[in-house]
Each structure stands twice: as structure tokens, then as C-alpha cells.
Design a protein around this nucleic acid. Structure first.
Lengths: 332, 332
DNA sequence: CGATTTTTTGCAACCGGTTGCAAAAAGAGG
DNA sequence: CCTCTTTTTGCAACCGGTTGCAAAAAATCG
């Protein structure tokens, strides 16, 4: 039983439009009127119904925030950054957990029912087709951490995973590793595929290497640990490029359990540069992904699209860099 | 430019009410009519505007999900569980990040503007007064992980933190530790206060102990690490009850860096039993907090309140239990 | 088959706001 | 003080749905 505009109008003895105008900025109201209305509103504890007004204005300030990764701590930081950035701009995140459901249409329908002004897909695993479905449905969308393409069909903000794969390969080769392996995230993830292809295309340019690969079934500590435990039972490689930092840290845990040590017995390079990577007892050599910039840029793009829905799709790709710590042997 | 009910009505050649009724379950529509309308709707790609209907029905199916902890990985799991549970029931989480803002009124106002059907406060740090503000504003609220009280003013679902403190104290004393300390989370957090008071009230019942305490400034790895590093520079205690598992793990990292070992030199007991706690290279002795049950129960309560907003407030407290692993010395 | 009951349908008002338009009020200028 | 502008205000229609009510249609029954 919240207070309505009509009640405020009656108490202030003015028309409903007058009340509406005092709460719409840019509308023409005299100071006298404004004071009268504000007084009445305060007395009654009125605050306008955002949803009702969205009916006529066509904007809800609701933004769908869609993710399918609720196991990788990096995403807690991502959620933190996204929600703050949205809130700072008066936008509201409607969170969608895609963990099981993966059909874009269901999400699109749901978000349209709630008339979201836009949608942010925050996932390094979903294919471009997923976010495309939003665009097709007329929902402004930006795909954060999505697959890089020189001809993107939707706005993409992220990194060039192929290049990261190459960078990892160059780094391992430079350290003199000859038996080199890729321990990827889920095989179906676009980020896994791209890192894989960059990694092996670069390795292919070098001779005398023994290479192999396998995939963890999720971007999570446990999956990395399990997969590394499995690898250790066979003959492990000299160095691994792990799909990301959580996989790396899971792998490190597995290696420690087996009595082997890093970097003496096995080298590890990760990707993300999450907070934990710099703990002294982890001290992970990794590729830094500029998460804050990606989030900030995604939101800027989203905001721009609110005014200009048909904005030409662009890819914003941020450079990554190697962070040298202690899980690879020194340069020879 | 989404399709509206009116357009569907015109295409099907029926009244708008007919269309509305086919999409409202429990409404009386003949099969013939239903088929006609559904056909037209399908042709046009219509789906009803949830916000418009909320105007008359008074329900948005929007639930505010409020948290101020975006640094503790345990909360990623909490978000995962909450969002799934809500989605399974056709409810939508509107995420509120309280990291900076801490005045309840601002959140209350915002969530009322969006006419949420209810609010879940997921925080072990916010005081009961925070959630009370929602109740006072007529917004059904449940405080998950909130402070236990025998006379709760709002629905509270969680654990008895005082009892957990006692449990930790009993465990440490039983292992023969005499120099015992509390490494709490933020001092202002209700969970910290309760764990502290339970811990020391139990210790007080034993003689010959040396006790001390300090607080980390957040429930995060880094804060735990920093605080333990500080403690190690002075004379550390024999055993620590850490505010929660992330603090424990941060502390373990600090201890490892200092060349000391666990449990030989220092004992640690945590609280939460997060996934990482059972990694073999961490192997943290801790107190298990039944997160899934807390979340499930919170949502059940929320759903019940949607039908019965004035339901008498209750506290649902779940028992915790010690999980013995390797960070305390064996029982003597 | 007609009368009676039950089901289905459409009308019109309403939910809580916004907004184009014209009338009313205020200000400017002579 | 009277015009002419400019600003402020209210009316009424509209946004996309829902719902009570009464009329129309269908079903039941003797």
C-alpha cells in the first residue's frame, strides 16, 4: 500500500501532472509549485513507482546481468565491479544465472518480459550466437569476456584469447621447456578454444617439442585439481599452460600433494592474475587480464547504447601481459 | 517495439480481455478461444509485459537480493544457490551491492521504487536494524546469515554464532592449547561479535589460559593474511580461531611464508567449511555451516511470506558441526 | 424444444504514472 | 493599463496490462 502520485496531488491541492513534473527532471514547474508538492510528498512518504513510469517512458533502468560462471572466484570480483558500476549510473542489475539453462531464447524472453533496457552477458564460455539472440530481439547487449572477432555481430569487450595462448607458448618455449601441455577449461568454452588454438599455433612454429593437451570440465579449483591429479598418474609434461588461474591453483594443489614441486619439477602458467595469484605461497606466474577495464568499458558501451540502440557493433580488446612470479623456471 | 496485447487481440479478432485471460492461469477461457489467441500470439511473437501486469496485480516477482560481501568466495556459492532457487520459483533477483552505501533507507527506497515483492538480506555483518527497515516499510524480508535472536523482529535464517564460538573454544581447549587467540572478521560485523562472545565466554570457564584477540578488516583472504603477518611479528598464540575460512586460509598462507608450520607450530580452526577447506594442501579443520540449507530455508520463508506478508517473524537456526582435518594437533 | 443454469466473452474502469496541447497566469514592453 | 510573449498549469488520452460485471453463448434438463 505505497503512497501514489494521486494522493500527493490531492494533499497538495494540485493536478497529478504537476506532481509528476516535480519528479521528472527537465520538466517545467514553478518554484512555488515544487515546494508545495515536495512538502506533500515528504509528509506522505511518497516515492514514484519506477515501473509504472517505465510504461510510458519506455525505460526501466533494469539491466540484465547474465552469467554462467558461479564457481570461479574471479566472477565475484566481476559481479562486484558490474553491480557498482551499474548502481553508480542509476541502473539496476537483474541477475540471471544460466548455470543449467543454456537456450538463449528462454533468457531473451524472460528479460523482455521485464523490459530490461539492456543486457550484459558476462561469460568467457558462451558462444557469440548467445548474445546475438538478444540483439536480434532488439535488446541492446554487450558481451563481456566474449570471443574476439574482427567482424563482431554484437559489442564485445574482452581480450584476445588467441594472442594470450601465443604469449603463453612463447613464454614456455623461451624458458627452455620441451614437453609442453595445455590444461584447458571446458572444451566447449570459446575462451578455451581460442587459447588452445593460439597456444598450439605458436608451438607449431618451434621444433623439437612434445606437446599434449587435456581439458578440465569447468573453470574451478576442483576441476583443475582433479585433472592435474589424473595427469600426474601418467607421465606429466614439464610445463602446463592452464586455462586460467583457478585451474592453475587447483593444479598446484594437486602437484603439492604428489610430492612434486614447482617450478623444479613442473612449470605452471595461468591466466587472469586474480588476487590469490600473488600470495607468496602460490606466487603464480600468469597472464594478467585487465578485468576492471573490461567491466568499465562494457558499462560505458551499455550506457552509450541506451541512447543509441543501433550503434554499430564494435570489439574492444584490451592487451594482456605476462606477470612473472615463481611457477616457471627462470629464463635460461 | 515489442508486441502488445492489443495487437494480438486485433489479429485474433477477439477482445483484449480474452488475450489477457489466456495468459493468466486460472482464468476462464474456452479451448477454441485459447487456440485462436495462442496462434496469434505465436505469429506475432508476443509475450506479456510482466511490469505492466504488476501494476494491477501488485506483484512483480522481483526479489531484492542484498549483500555487502563481494570478496568472500563463499558468497559466490551463496549467490549461485539464491539465484537458482529464485529462478526455479519464477522469481527474479534484483541484485543490490551494498559495499559502500550502508544506510538502509536508501536501499529500501530504491527497492520500493521497483516494487519488489520481497527482499533477502544475505549478510553476516549487517545489524538486525538493517533488515528491520524493510519490514517497517512493508517489504517482506528475510535476513539470511543474520544474527540469531530468540525474539527476532524479522525472519532470520542462519546459525548460532555464539554457540559456534563456544564450540571452537571447547575444541581448542580439548586439544591442550593454552595460549589461545581469536582472529575475527570486521569488528562491526554481528557474526564477529557473536563468535567472539561465545568463544571467550567458553574460554572463561577454563583456568590457566592465556587469551588474546584481534580483528581483520574484512572477511577476505588478504585481510586474514595481513592480520596474521602482523601477529607473527609479535609473539603468536598457539592456536587461533579465525573468523571464517577465508581468513583462515589467508592466515595459513602467512604462516607458511614465515617458515612456521601447521599444526606443529600453530593451530588454526575456521568456520564455514568452504570447498577449498578440504583441499589436501589446505586441509583446514573448521566448523561446517550448512549453507545450502540456509539458502533453501530462506527462500521457502520468502515464498511463504509472499502469500502471508504479516507472518510472525521466526528465527530458523541450523546446527553447525566440527569438521576435523589437519590444522589442529591431535586430541591428547 | 423451451426454460434454467453454467460458462464464456466483451465492456469499461482501473493500476500509477507521463505528456501533448490548450487555457490560464505571469512577465515584458510601450 | 493594455498588448504581446513566455512560462506554468490542468485536462485528457495514453502506456500495457487486469478484472468486476453483465450480456451472450453454450450446456443441462425436464
Amino acid at each position: 500500500m505505497p503512497v501514489t502520485l494521486k494522493e500527493v496531488a490531492e494533499r497538495a491541492g494540485v493536478s497529478r501532472s504537476a506532481v509528476s513534473r516535480t519528479f521528472t527532471d527537465g520538466a517545467s514547474v514553478s518554484d512555488k509549485m515544487r515546494r508545495k508538492v515536495e512538502k506533500a510528498a515528504r509528509d506522505l512518504g511518497y516515492s514514484p513507482n519506477a515501473l509504472a513510469s517505465s510504461l510510458t517512458t519506455g525505460r526501466t533502468k533494469l539491466i540484465g546481468l547474465i552469467s554462467n560462471n558461479f564457481h570461479n572466484p574471479i566472477f565475484l570480483e566481476v559481479f562486484d565491479l558490474f553491480t557498482r558500476a551499474l548502481q553508480d549510473r542509476g541502473l539496476r542489475p537483474l541477475l540471471v544465472n544460466l548455470s543449467d539453462e543454456t537456450d538463449p531464447q528462454a533468457s531473451v524472453r524472460m528479460l523482455r518480459q521485464y523490459s530490461v533496457d539492456g543486457a550484459v552477458v558476462a561469460s568467457s564460455t558462451l558462444p557469440p550466437g548467445f548474445s546475438k539472440a538478444f540483439r536480434d530481439a532488439g535488446v541492446p547487449v554487450v558481451h563481456s569476456f566474449g570471443r574476439y572477432s574482427s567482424t563482431p555481430q554484437v559489442h564485445v569487450v574482452g581480450i584476445d584469447n588467441v594472442e594470450c595462448g601465443r604469449m603463453a607458448a612463447r613464454t614456455l618455449v623461451a624458458r627452455g621447456y620441451r614437453k609442453i601441455a595445455f590444461l584447458g577449461g571446458p572444451e566447449s568454452a570459446t575462451s578455451t578454444q581460442d587459447r588452445y588454438s593460439g597456444f598450439f599455433s605458436e608451438l607449431g612454429a618451434h621444433r623439437g617439442l612434445t606437446t599434449s593437451y587435456s581439458f578440465a570440465d569447468a573453470y574451478s579449483f576442483d576441476a583443475g585439481r582433479r585433472e592435474m591429479l589424473r595427469l600426474l598418474r601418467a607421465a606429466p609434461a614439464e610445463a602446463y599452460f592452464c586455462g586460467d588461474d583457478v585451474l592453475s591453483i587447483g593444479a598446484l594443489s594437486a602437484i603439492a600433494d604428489s610430492g612434486l614441486s614447482v617450478p623444479e619439477d613442473i612449470g605452471i602458467i595461468g591466466l587472469n592474475d586474480m588476487e590469490m595469484a600473488r600470495w607468496e605461497n602460490i606466487n603464480l606466474t600468469t597472464i594478467h587480464q585487465p578485468i576492471r577495464q573490461i567491466v568499465t568499458s562494457s558499462i560505458e558501451l551499455m550506457v552509450a547504447m541506451l541512447d543509441e540502440p543501433d550503434r554499430y557493433p564494435e570489439a574492444r580488446i584490451f592487451p594482456c601481459s605476462i606477470v612473472e612470479r615463481g611457477t616457471l623456471r627462470p629464463l635460461c
